[in-house]
Design a binder for these strands. Structure first.
Lengths: 171, 171
DNA sequence: TCATATAATCTTAGTACTAAGATGACAACG
DNA sequence: CGTTGTCATCTTAGTACTAAGATTATATGA
C-alpha cells in the first residue's frame, strides 16, 4: 500500500539551495551539541539557562539581576524565575544594591561556588569533546565564518526588532 | 559604587578555549538566525515547529504521524498536539491508513496547500537573506565544517542516549 | 494458533520560559 | 521643587512542547 499522492515541487535556485542547506546543517549541529550539553548539565539538575547564570556569576562575580538578564538573553520575568529557583536550592542569593533601591545583586553562595568549582571543568571538557569532530584549525575557521554569519544575521534582526525591543524593554 | 568582589578564574588551555569560543559563536549565530525565522513565520501565526510539519507535508505529500514526528524530531505527544492545532486551523487533516488501523496520515488541506504556496517562497528568501553574511563559497565551507561537527557530536550523543531512547521510544 | 513483545497514536500532567502588566524607585527637565 | 518619563524587578497568565503512561493494533516466535 503506497501512501497517498506525492507531490513534486520546483527545485530552488542554487543560491537558495546553498542557504537552505546551511540552515539545516547549522540547526542540526546546534541541536546535537545542545543535546550533549543538556545531558551533561541535567546530571546536576541544571538547565542550560540556570547554568548560564551560575557561570556568569562564577566568572564575573556578583551582578545586578538586569545585568545577568542581558548577559544570558532571558526576559525579566525569566531572570526572576530562574534566580528564585537557584536561591531555593541555596546556590544563589539576592543582595541589596546601596545606590539603587530597586536593584538586586545575584551572588553565588558558598554552595554555589563549590558546585561551579566542581562542574565547570567537566563542562568545559564536555564542550571540548563536543567540538572534537573538528581540528583546532577547523574550529577557528568555523568560528570565523559563524561569527561573520551571526553578526550579519543579528544586525538585520536588530534593526527589525528595534521598535519591538523598545516595547519589550520592561521585560 | 562598585559591585561586590570580582573573582579571577584560571584561564583555560588553548584547546578548550578554542572549543568554548566556537560553542558560544555557534549558539549566537543559531540564535540570531532562529530569531529571524521566528519573526518571519510568526507573521503567519506559525511556530517554527508547525511550519516544519507543513513543510514536510508540502514537499513529501501525506505522511504518517510517526513519519512526520521522526522527520522533525518532536515527541509523540508533540506531534498529536501540533497536528491538532493545524487541523483546528483547517491547514491539515488526518486520514485513515488502510493497512494499519493504528496509524493516521497527516495531509495538507487545500487551505494548507495554498498557505504553503504563498509563504514558502518568502521563507526560502528569508533564509537566503539570513545567510547572506557569507558568500556562496563561504556557505559551502561552513556547511562542510558544520556537517562534520554535527555528525561527530551526534554520534557520541546517540551512543550515550542509546539506552535512554529505548525508554523514550514510546514518546 | 496463541502468547508475548513491539509499535502507533492519544492523553495527561508537568516544565521552562515568555509576554504583558504592576509597583516602586530613579532620572530628567523646567 | 514638582512633574513626567524611564527604569529595575516582580507577578501573573499563558504557551509550546516534553515525559510518562494508556489504549489499541500489529509483529514475532514457538
Amino acid at each position: 500500500m503506497t501512501s497517498p499522492s506525492t507531490p513534486r515541487r520546483k527545485a530552488p535556485d542554487a543560491a537558495t539551495a546553498s542557504a537552505l542547506k546551511l540552515f539545516v546543517v547549522l540547526a542540526r549541529a546546534q541541536r546535537a551539541i545542545g543535546e550533549r550539553m543538556e545531558a551533561s548539565l541535567g546530571a546536576h539538575g541544571l538547565t542550560h539557562t540556570e547554568f548560564a547564570i551560575l557561570e556568569a556569576l562564577y566568572h564575573k562575580g556578583p551582578l545586578l539581576l538586569g545585568e545577568v538578564q542581558r548577559k544570558i538573553l532571558v526576559s525579566s520575568g525569566g531572570i526572576t524565575f530562574l534566580v528564585d529557583k537557584l536561591a531555593d536550592r541555596g546556590l544563589v542569593e539576592r543582595r541589596l544594591c546601596e545606590s539603587d533601591r530597586r536593584a538586586r545583586y545575584a551572588v553565588l553562595t558558598r554552595k554555589g561556588e563549590a558546585l561551579m568549582s566542581d562542574i565547570f571543568p567537566a563542562h568545559a571538557e564536555a564542550i571540548r569533546e563536543a567540538m572534537s569532530g573538528l581540528s583546532r584549525a577547523e574550529q577557528k575557521q568555523a568560528t570565523t565564518l559563524l561569527k561573520q554569519l551571526g553578526l550579519a544575521a543579528a544586525t538585520a534582526a536588530t534593526a527589525a526588532a528595534a521598535d519591538g525591543s523598545r516595547r519589550t524593554a520592561a521585560g
